[in-house]
């Protein structure tokens, strides 16, 4: 009895507040664009039977999404932005993780804390911090003008560049931590063995360190890529009107256009796109766990 309650309470909670809402999204995405308030047709009822319900289903929202170039572009550009920023985060994050793992042992807890600290700080504030830096009269432009590298201020805020910077900045801890934990476990004598067997420093790094931190790289990349794909705050604060990202489109579809069925359809497709990396990520994690056992 007690065991039943223990299982049932969280189970029912998740069913009611995670799965059911999800089914509602799916259902509304298949509904007609009716009034901006429910109920949408078709309303499902068991009396009519499943088949009758299925016949009423309407894929016109999806057809519409497929036909409207805006959505295609938004999906593709989300993918592109997420991919490029994941690569950038890796390039920036790897040397930091590497240096942390090579740092004297008594420094490491402090370095770890310094990496984690921004993670506990409000995401919104961290994105906001860049607005003052990247704007026309912002610090970056002031600095570059002062050094004489540029003659007139660059436009960075409200472009895709600002979005890249924002994603790299905010998601960096997610990249650094798994790579750091992989590198920290790496036995230093392996590098010495590689050098003993005739590798140069660079070769040892390429042939030993990189392959052995592969799992950390993969985990970190997924941890950046997956949330970046559905990102909303960064493109809406740092991006411009030409920065199309699907999270932002969904938001606007919902809050500005009040078109709930289309917003739901966008959500469903976003999720379908995410399924592949999520499954890959899960499999990688599982493989790693098995390897550790």
């Amino acid at each position: 009895m007690r065991r039943f309650a223990l299982i049932a309470i969280p189970y029912v909670w998740l069913l009611a507040l995670f799965l059911v809402p999800f089914v509602i999204v799916l259902k509304i995405s298949l509904s007609d664009i009716a009034l901006a308030i429910p109920p949408y047709t078709p309303t499902f009822s068991w009396d009519d039977g499943v088949w009758a319900f299925l016949k009423q289903l309407d894929f016109e929202n999806f057809t519409w999404l497929a036909q409207d170039a805006l959505y295609w572009k938004a999906y593709l550009s989300s993918l592109k932005i997420a991919l490029i920023s994941t690569a950038l985060t890796l390039i920036v994050g790897y040397p930091i993780a590497y240096a942390m793992a090579r740092a004297p042992e008594e420094w490491r807890p402090t370095l770890m804390m310094l990496i984690i600290l921004p993670f506990w700080t409000s995401f919104l504030i961290r994105v906001y911090a860049w607005m003052g830096i990247l704007s026309q009269e912002g610090f970056l432009n002031q600095f570059l003008l002062w050094t004489g590298l540029i003659g007139e201020p660059l436009t960075i805020l409200n472009t895709s560049t600002a979005v890249y910077i924002g994603i790299v900045y905010t998601y960096m801890p997610f990249m650094i931590l798994p790579i750091y934990s992989a590198l920290e476990r790496l036995d230093g004598s392996l590098i010495e063995a590689a050098e003993d067997l005739g590798c140069s420093r660079a070769q040892a790094f390429w042939l030993v360190t990189i392959p052995l931190s592969k799992n950390g790289i993969i985990a970190g990349s997924f941890l950046v890529f997956i949330p970046a794909l559905g990102e909303f705050v960064i493109p809406s604060l740092l991006g411009g009107s030409d920065t199309l990202m699907i999270g932002k489109v969904l938001w606007e579809e919902f809050f500005s256009n009040r078109d709930w069925p289309v917003a739901s359809a966008v959500a469903v497709i976003l999720l379908l796109i995410l399924v592949v990396p999520i499954v890959l990520f899960q499999r990688n994690q599982q493989k790693q766990q098995e390897a550790e056992q």
């Binding site: 969280p10 189970y11 998740l14 999204v25």
Partner: peptide, 24 residues
């Protein structure tokens, strides 16, 4: 299903979670 429901929200884009809860 249970473990799926535990792990899914971790990777679910916030816009989707928010939208679905609102509709509920």
């Amino acid at each position: 299903l249970f473990s799926g429901m535990i792990y899914a929200p971790l990777v679910m884009p916030e816009v989707i979670t928010g939208l679905s809860l609102l509709l509920l």
